[in-house]
Design a binder for these strands. Structure first.
Length: 588
RNA sequence: GCCCCAGUAGCUCAAUCGGACAGAGCAGGUGCCUUCUAAGCACAAGGCUGAUGAUUCGAGUUCAUCCUGGGGCACCA
């Protein structure tokens, strides 16, 4: 936003260096790290170190850097738009002329509204595949991370300027589905789920596993059913089609509550046959070894082919009995995506970290098979959601927290708080607030964490609405709205303030001004964490402002400026929340 | 055995691709609601960033070697 000013300063500094016979400096401007001071800074250590290395040492590096910074400060003078320039310990700090810059910033926020921070269209299409739930199973908190993370990535990349295709890839076939069908046919024929569909589906599945563990001889029946499926026995296919839809309906309900949507569904079952064709192609190209005559598998020995040892290892692409595995299907899926969208610049897979090797193998195999788009495929790994004590959530062990239960509990807990805080709202409004707060509280901890770090789920912190959490950010948004409402809803016209801004005002303006570049950084690094932190920083700056700077009771000019600042801050917070997929409520 | 990831306050996490005094929240301590919603704010306390070396003007961040924990390594997904 201040590129023009920065450019002018860069030119002056280049001229200064040329005059002094110094190499052209590599100015790496960053924000001044001191709270309540708004401006940009750079350092001269690298320049001083370079001098020293070239034998032109003029004293120790730190003192030389300080000297250079001092000289640079004098050379720069006081450029337009800045109110102070200083050289401190080798750093050159330029403080914005706050009143001037602040009003420019606020003007553009209020002008762009929900588009504030949006990057220029990059003209690149990317696909993000996420969520990948298994039908005929429960949907638990462990499955939530891919859904929430993937959704946030879609929102971020879209806002950063990419054309995003949101893809889902449900696991709708496999041994787990057959077990489920077997249990249903034998013990639950004719039943259908009423409410809490996925929970009910999960119960049938868990029961199937229990029965098979207690009576292992029944496995034969399951195997028989699997071959009926393989023969596409109409009765089995019909039942599969119907029951699969139950799960998908359940997922839809869950996605609706979480405000997550998809543009494109790929199904495991769709990739089964095409996968076998890819394998045939690999064999034909001499890439895959067909060891089925010796009762073996079809596999690709990646390491042998690449002359490596214990890196890519061996990828089995077809079972010895000729049936498909996950890898078989993934080969076809990748191909399918690029035939649906030939212009994909990137195909992301938001899948947990345990499958890192698997994806490396699949992508490398496709690359060796000569598909040029293979190197545009990228696994976005994330760590699991565990229970306290590092207990893994596993539907078979029963150590799961069901998503239905978590949502219901979070919303009802939030409802209790709203009843108490804001009893005047209508029942409908209270429920809307409780939903926003409850869901937000669930999403935030999944996003405000490095992708590669394990999330430990426990009820106490999941339902804690205080401190560094979504409700804190939502609350700042609500407080802003409340001020604007009491002021009559009209935002004063643009003007440049003449009063000296308070520390809290400067800090808030500073936080807002960083939003656009944070969007790019978070999207570029595929890290919603950066945006979650940004949202929190904005809310904290706003809350500080709120307690330190009265708005409605201030002098007319101050009041007008602050009303504009509140509106801009609220907009920025709202935009940040939107990128996290968290609803910004009107009241709380 | 090989490979990947994590290790920061009692607990949960940050730290703007190597920069200024390592920052928040929770828990516990002390204050602040006649003033825009206290789901908030302020103050105090809490640290040898797993260990030892190396590179650098400068290291939580890079490199080496270890330690601890988690995960992955041919017919599960």
């Amino acid at each position: 936003m201040f590129e023009a000013e920065q450019h002018a300063i860069n030119q002056r500094l280049s001229a200064f260096c040329a005059e002094k016979g110094l190499p052209n400096p590599d100015l790496n401007w960053t924000w001044i790290p001191f709270n309540g001071h708004w401006g940009i800074c750079t350092s001269f250590f690298q320049l001083a170190a370079r001098e020293a290395r070239e034998g032109k040492a003029a004293g120790p590096v730190p003192s030389r850097a300080a000297e250079l910074a001092q000289m640079a400060a004098e050379a720069v003078g006081l450029p337009d738009g800045f109110e102070r320039v200083e050289a401190v310990k080798g750093y050159l700090n330029l403080y914005f002329s706050t009143a001037n810059y602040a009003s420019r910033l606020i003007d553009s926020v209020l002008d762009e509204k929900q588009e504030f921070g949006r990057g220029k269209a990059k003209g690149e299409r990317v696909m993000i595949e996420f969520s990948q739930p298994n039908t005929h199973k429960a949907f638990h908190v462990g499955h939530l991370r891919s859904a929430i993370l993937g959704d946030a990535l879609c929102r971020l990349l879209d806002f950063a300027g990419y054309d995003v295709v949101r893809a889902n890839y449900p696991g709708d076939i496999g041994l787990h589905v057959i077990k489920w069908l077997w249990n249903y046919m034998n013990f639950h024929a004719g039943e259908r789920p009423e409410t809490n569909i996925t929970e009910w589906m999960g119960k049938i599945y868990a029961e199937a596993n229990r029965r098979l563990e207690e009576n292992p001889e029944l496995e034969a029946e399951v195997r028989a059913l699997y071959s009926r499926w393989d023969q596409r026995d109409p009765e089995v296919v019909a039942l599969w089609t119907e029951t699969r839809q139950w799960s998908l309906d359940g997922f839809d309900e869950m996605y609706r509550q979480l405000d997550i949507r998809f543009d494109r569904y790929y199904f495991n079952s769709m990739a089964e046959q095409p996968g076998k064709e890819v394998v045939a192609e690999l064999i034909e190209k001499g890439l895959a070894t067909d060891d089925r005559p010796n009762n073996g598998t079809v596999f690709v020995d990646l390491d042998a082919r690449l002359g490596l040892k214990e890196k890519y290892r061996v990828l089995v692409v077809l079972r010895s009995d000729g049936t498909a595995l996950y890898a078989t299907e993934d080969l076809a899926l990748a191909k399918l995506k690029f035939s649906d969208y030939p212009d994909l610049a990137r195909s992301y897979y938001v899948v947990d970290v345990r499958q890192s090797l698997h994806f490396q193998q699949v992508f490398k195999t496709l690359e060796l098979a000569g598909y040029p788009w293979a190197k545009h495929c990228q696994h976005v790994p994330y760590e699991l959601v565990n229970l306290p004590g590092n207990v893994v959530m596993a539907s078979r062990e029963g150590t799961v927290v069901l998503l239905e239960h978590l949502i219901a509990e979070a919303v009802s807990r939030a409802l209790e708080v709203v009843e108490q805080k804001n009893p005047d709202l209508t029942a409908e409004q209270k429920l809307a607030v409780a939903r926003a707060v409850g869901i937000g509280a669930i999403k935030y901890p999944m996003l405000a964490r490095e992708n590669a770090k394990i999330v430990t789920f426990d009820w106490k912190t999941a339902l804690d609405f205080d401190g560094q959490a979504a409700p804190y950010i939502q609350y700042a948004y609500v407080r802003g709205g409340s001020i604007l409402r009491k002021a009559g809803g009209e935002i004063p016209a643009a003007f440049t303030p003449t009063h000296t801004l308070q520390r809290e005002e400067v800090a808030l303006v500073d936080a807002i001004s960083r939003f656009p570049s944070e969007v790019q950084r978070a999207a570029g690094d595929l890290r919603p964490l950066a945006m979650a932190t940004q949202a929190y920083d904005l809310a904290r700056a706003f809350n500080d402002f709120y307690t330190g700077c009265p708005v409605l009771s201030a002098e007319p000019e101050v009041r007008a400026f602050r009303l504009r600042l509140v509106a801009a801050a609220r907009q920025a917070i709202g935009n940040a929340l939107a990128l996290l997929g968290i609803t910004a409520p009107e009241a709380m």
